[in-house]
């Protein structure tokens, strides 16, 4: 395979809560390759959001390095990070984070405005991507006039409009019902795959994970399992979900056993 687009090297993050130190992430090593649909799966408190923040350069690690496109984003200044995000990264948020005063079209053009593209280009690109996510008829709607699913589709369009190399999605369907979740995930995968973009999704939902072709299972700040999903091996999603379930159950058992052992010792 080619060079990894994201490389994490011995990452550690420690929060200080008063006098107490809380290890949120420890000894994280991973490599993600271009075009992969990755999922960081974990229960709440497992450190998955912290990991995403660090991958996207929103937070600084206590130790270790994150490389995207071979540049170490952990070393970058705030200013350089903004430039970097503008060029290479896209974001989809759980709470959509659309700007309420702007229409769908304006929200989607925003990353291109920041890039300094001219108006014709912006509007054309935004209309295109909004068509792809199925919102051609809602160009001039404000966020308050749209449903959650529609808002998230705008969010997805906004993340992909500037053709970034990597798109990060933090619980993208956390606020949506299961039917809409299915739609949203399919749209996101479609867009990412058609442009060969790398997608990193953070979720606690195993259903969501089943859309990915690579799953990192995060538990207690560590990656306990790195599953490469060969979709051809599974007849349907149910089988895959079942498999994931199995793996994680055994992993959990292993961990709790090792903990008990260490306590006995």
């Amino acid at each position: 395979m080619s060079e990894p687009i994201i490389k994490v090297d011995n990452l550690r993050k420690v929060y200080k809560l008063g006098t107490q130190k809380v290890v949120a992430l420890d000894n994280i090593n991973l490599e993600i390759y271009p075009g992969e649909i990755c999922c960081i799966l974990g229960t709440s408190g497992s450190g998955k959001s912290t990991l995403l923040n660090m991958l996207a350069g929103l937070e600084k690690p206590s130790r270790g390095n994150v490389f995207i496109n071979n540049s170490s984003i952990s070393q970058m200044s705030e200013k350089e990070l903004v430039d970097f995000r503008q060029k290479y990264l896209g974001f989809v948020f759980q709470s959509y984070n659309l700007i309420n005063s702007m229409t769908a079209l304006e929200n989607v053009t925003l990353p291109l405005v920041f890039k300094g593209k001219n108006k014709n280009f912006r509007v054309k690109a935004a209309k295109n991507i909004l068509k792809t996510v199925g919102l051609s008829s809602h160009l001039n709607h404000k966020p308050s006039q749209m449903s959650g699913g529609q808002q998230q589709r705008v969010g997805i369009a906004r993340a992909f409009v500037s053709n970034p190399s990597v798109v990060f999605a933090d619980e993208p369907t956390g606020n949506l019902d299961s039917k809409t979740t299915d739609e949203i995930m399919k749209i996101m995968l479609d867009v990412a795959q058609s442009f060969g973009q790398t997608l990193v999704i953070v979720t606690h939902d195993r259903d969501i994970a089943s859309y990915a072709n690579r799953i990192f299972y995060l538990f207690d700040g560590r990656i306990c399992y790195d599953l490469h999903v060969n979709k051809e091996l599974y007849g349907n999603r149910e089988d895959l979900l079942h498999h994931i379930q199995e793996i994680f159950d055994t992993e959990k058992q292993k961990i709790s056993q090792s903990k008990e052992n260490s306590e006995v010792e």
Partner: peptide, 15 residues
């Protein structure tokens, strides 16, 4: 919040 979102979307600090 809006400013934060703009920063994440790549709006330069000087802008």
């Amino acid at each position: 919040k809006e400013i934060g979102v703009m920063k994440v979307l790549g709006c330069k600090l000087s802008n």
